[in-house]
Structure formats: C-alpha cells, structure tokens
Design a binder for these strands. Structure first.
Lengths: 196, 196
DNA sequence: GCCTTAAATTGAACAACGATCAATATTTTA
DNA sequence: TAAAATATTGATCGTTGTTCAATTTAAGGC
C-alpha cells in the first residue's frame, strides 16, 4: 500500500475530519477549503477525494463531528443536575453554539445538492440531540400530557434555535436585544405554563 | 460615455439587482454567480464590479430587494384584515419564505466579511419588518403592557424564524413535524397568554 | 531477497469562480 | 470637430471543487 505512514484507512478518515473540523471552526463555512485541509495534514487533494468521494461527503462528516460534540456537551451539562434540567439544557445549547460558532453555523450553512438526502447516520445524530430535549420536556409535563412531549420538544427546539441564530448572526444586536438566552427561556416557560 | 444602450446608472443598478434576485431565487445562494448575472443582462463581469465595487455589495443589494418584497408582501396580507392580524402576519411570514425559499434563505446564508458591518439602509429594512410585528403585538397586549411589545416582538420573530427555518431546511420533516405553521402559532399564543 | 499484486498517493489538468485594471469604446462637453 | 469624461471590456490572476492516469509504497508468496 502507498501509505506514507502507519495510518489505516479509518485513522486517515479521522485525521481528515479532525483537521476539517478545526478548519471550519476557525475560518467558517464560507472560507473552508478541502485543499487546505489536505495540506495541513500532509496529504494532497486527491487523497481526500479518494477517502470521501466528494466535497459534500466530507462536509457531512465534519458536521457529524460537530453534532457529536454538541450531544456530548449537552449530556455533560446535564450530568448530576437535579433541578432546572431543561434550563440547563437550553443554556448549554447557547453555550455550545457560541463557543463553536463557526462549526455550529456550518450545520445550517451547508445543504446537500438537490436530489441527495441526508444519510441515516446524520439523521440519527440530530434525533439523538432531539431525544434529550424530548426526555427533559416529558419530565416537565404533567403525566397525562406526556404524549405531547415530542411535538412540544420539536417546537421548542425551533424556538431556541431561532433565538440562538439571531444572537449569533447579529439580528438581535441590530434590534436592541441584549439577553437572547433570557428571552428563549421566557418563551419555553410560557409554553410549559400553557401545558400545565 | 460608453453605455451600450440608454441605461442611466441607477437603471443599470436596477437591472443587475433585478436579474441577481431572479438568479438567486432560482439557483440559491450556493450556486449564485455574478458572472452569470452579467451575462444574462448582456454585460460582462467588469461592469458589475464597476457598479457595485464588490461581491458583498452586490449581495447586500439583492438581499435588500428580498427584504423589500418581504415587507410589501407582509403589508399586503394585513391590508383590510380586522381580526387575527397577528396570525395573518405569521402565515404571511411562512408563505413568503416558502414562495421565495432560495431568496429568503440567502438572507441568512450570506454574511459580511469580518470587520465590515451592515449598512444603515439594510438595517432600516430589517427594522421596518420588525416594526410591523411590534405594532401588531402591541395591539394584542393589554394597554399597560405596551412597553413590553418591542422585546416580545423580537423574541416572537426569533420563534417564528426558528420554525420557518426548520420547515425549509428539512429538520422538521426529519423529526416528524408536519404542521410547522400551527406549531409557530401555538408558541405565539402561549407567549401572549402569559402576558394577559 | 525478489517479484507480483494490491492499495495508497500524487499532482497535472479542467472548468468556474471572485477580483483587478489597463486598454478600449462611447458619450458628453466645449 | 476635438478634448474630456465616462462606461465597458476582457485578459489575467489566484483559488476553488473535481477527475484520473501515473506513480509510489506496502504486502504476500516463493
């Protein structure tokens, strides 16, 4: 085999995704370059295409890494928390997005070419994050409304996403809003109150 | 002057923005090409740069056009409506985003280069749309809570944005949500209920 | 050790992009 | 009509994603 060192294929994949994630975290989606990633790990552009097949697959893998980190961060922030778990989850949501703003934004900047659809692995990661929120919402709801938890969780995820997005892209600053997290928490509280 | 026909400068600007908006509406932000816009109106790339100075300024102008159309659409949908004006506004929000999905998405796909900030004209357009919502929220609130309208309006805009964004990018479909508009209306109603 | 085979890696080549700007063409003004 | 002002061009540059024949390297058998 023509390996230049002792990386097996999965290890090379890991190197690329790792460096790719570092790159997109630093320069953002718009300035991301597959060539630059290759150069930084001592390979050339051809090797990246041999491993991933296309730019889209590479970006899916990098976004997958971001989702992994996001879920891990969420679970870490909930570990051992007894009271106010939902609030902790929402604060963790913002904290992660701000700390990894470029990588987080890339999750939404990147869209697959028309016709292609998101691979199952990726779907599972989004559902895993959603699952955490569904679980926390279920705990906040009266037992007889448990069946409503998934729908409410999806909607509150969208609510928090909107606030987080406006916080990061400057819309809130433009409109004079100075505490996006507090506003998101307000809206979540309003929704829960309506269900009680 | 070297004009090839009878366009004055403002008219050429108008031609470019008009064709640019058409292009971005058709192919989306990722596939948008300034060269292609120039070709379609019978000019070359150089002329576009003489008129707009940079790619960023061109895209700002195109997004400005989208904001203009958005505000006009919003006002049209509220014209003569007596009851349920806020609901009408939210439905109009979704309707516009869906009808102009690529142009609407480009509003958020495009970000200025670091350092540059949004020109005043653009800020004013975002504030104009927000202003409509603030006005409608004010009408829904008890008179003694009027002062809270701007804050609540910003937050509900973020809420609706999040639902609309998830509807368009496929997140809601992935999670099994089939009626994003209804969910957004639910959340707005919850918030208003808390204020009453 | 050597030779065959399989795998990995390269990098030149291509089309298209944003960006620049001296050269050219056109219109206006004197 | 000549000179000045303006508008337009398109070649040129560096960079991008993408492809793929050629090359290099490692593995296995003898």
């Amino acid at each position: 085999m023509g390996r230049r060192s002792d990386h097996t294929r999965p290890e090379l994949r890991e190197m690329i995704v790792s460096e790719g994630h570092r790159q997109i975290s630093e320069v953002g989606f718009a300035r991301f370059s597959a060539r630059e990633v290759a150069k930084r790990i001592g390979y050339t552009i051809g090797t990246l295409y041999n491993v991933f097949g296309s730019y889209d697959q590479l970006l899916l893998a990098i976004n997958g890494r971001t989702l992994d980190l996001w879920l891990a961060n969420l679970e870490r922030h909930l570990e051992g928390v007894e009271q106010g778990r939902l609030e902790a989850a929402i604060r963790a949501y913002f904290e992660f997005a701000i700390a990894h703003r470029h990588a987080w934004t890339a999750l939404y900047d990147f869209r697959l070419s028309e016709g292609e659809e998101m691979p199952e692995v990726q779907r599972a990661k989004v559902e895993a994050i959603t699952g955490v929120i569904i679980r926390e919402i279920t705990d906040e709801l009266p037992a007889e409304r448990s069946a409503d938890a998934p729908e409410l969780a999806r909607s509150l995820l969208a609510t928090v996403h909107g606030h987080c997005f406006f916080a990061l892209n400057g819309t809130f600053a433009l409109l004079g809003e100075t505490d996006p997290v507090a506003r998101a928490l307000d809206r979540v509280e309003d929704a829960l109150a309506a269900y009680r």
